Amino acid sequence: MTDPVAEPTVQTYMDAPSTPRLRLPPGACDSHVHVFGPRARFPYAPGNRSVPAEAPKERLFALHKQLGVERCVVVQSITHGFDNRVVEDTIKAGAGRYLGVALVPVDVPDAELQQLASCGFRAVRFHFMKHIGGGTQVDDVLALTPRLAAVDMHLQVHFESECVHTVGRQLLRSEVPVVIDHMGRVDATAGAGHADFQGLMSLLDKPRMHVKVSGIDRIESSARAGSGYPLGVALARELVSRFPEQCVWGLDWPHPNHTHVPDDGELVDALACIAPDQDALHKLVVENPEKLYRFPSRWRTR
């Protein structure tokens, strides 16, 4: 099957990112990446506003080797839509070190959920983002959660910051744990006192809510590679300090739908400020993802 999409592709990642100074602990997990293509095997979904360049699993594996990442959670992207084969292929090649998060419609059959779970998918993801056509109704997502519980999967959500007060509050009724992407896409320039960030923290007062302290490079309006992302780092550090059991971290490689191309080595080095002591870092990148995503026993650290 060939990919009919002919639009120009957009390079969204560095071919040669820096090697971080920070040495990650054994078992470190990158809990949020995507894989794109190769399109000859895994065609892109039609109708996407942006067509990213191929970012196949081999590039991801090489990047993780350079950065010192040993485990990973690959998140299905709208680039491939509901065809989760590209992530399934990466999970299989990862031999237990790589797990997945699927994209599915809210009326996904139980048999498909069971099949995804058996292949190493630990969650399903839903978007509430205007720029990628988010039109999912939160009540429909909530109605799915008992069926997710039956196959031991959780819920991952990506929403715009103002949704923390609406969608976020409604998701407290979920029958499975909920993971919020990219710190709720809050505006880092508004600081920790802004109502959206305060609303995010109020959600995390419930222990079944979790957050990815990914996206420090996305939530500063003037962010650029080499800046250190101090405003994004400050919010991530606040979350890790306040909710040490409920945070996981990820690169968000290969950085689709972005304002610039981040340096993945710089994103790893930012962890020295986000989780400034060894215990906090170990919990963030080893213990928390191990517990949340249930890596196979041969790849557990405990």
Rank of each mutant, 00 (worst) to 15 (best):
L99I: 00
D152W: 00
V151I: 11
R224H: 15
H210Y: 15
V167F: 11
T189S: 12
L63G: 12
L284G: 01
R300P: 00
A45S: 06
G133R: 11
G134F: 00
D181R: 08
R71F: 03
S241D: 14
V51Y: 14
F42N: 01
H158M: 08
E58V: 13
W253Y: 12
P26N: 12
T79G: 10
D3E: 09
L22N: 05
D277K: 09
R218I: 07
G47C: 10
R97W: 01
A95D: 11
H32A: 06
T301D: 00
P289S: 11
G191I: 04
P20Q: 08
A111I: 13
V268N: 06
K57L: 11
A280Y: 03
V286G: 03
D277I: 05
Q66F: 02
V233H: 09
L63V: 13
L292H: 09
L148K: 00
V213Q: 12
L103F: 04
F61K: 02
A53N: 02
I274F: 06
G226M: 12
S222D: 15
S214D: 12
D279N: 10
S77T: 14
E245H: 11
M209R: 10
H282W: 14
Q278V: 15
A28G: 02
P276K: 06
M14A: 15
P52G: 07
E88I: 05
T19Y: 09
E287V: 14
A150Q: 13
E54Y: 11
M209A: 07
A102H: 00
M1Q: 06
E290H: 00
G96K: 01
P289Y: 05
H64P: 03
F61V: 04
Q115F: 01
F121Y: 03
Q137W: 05
A195M: 14
A143P: 07
L292D: 02
R298T: 03
F82Q: 15
H131F: 10
T2V: 10
N84E: 03
Y44G: 09
C29N: 04
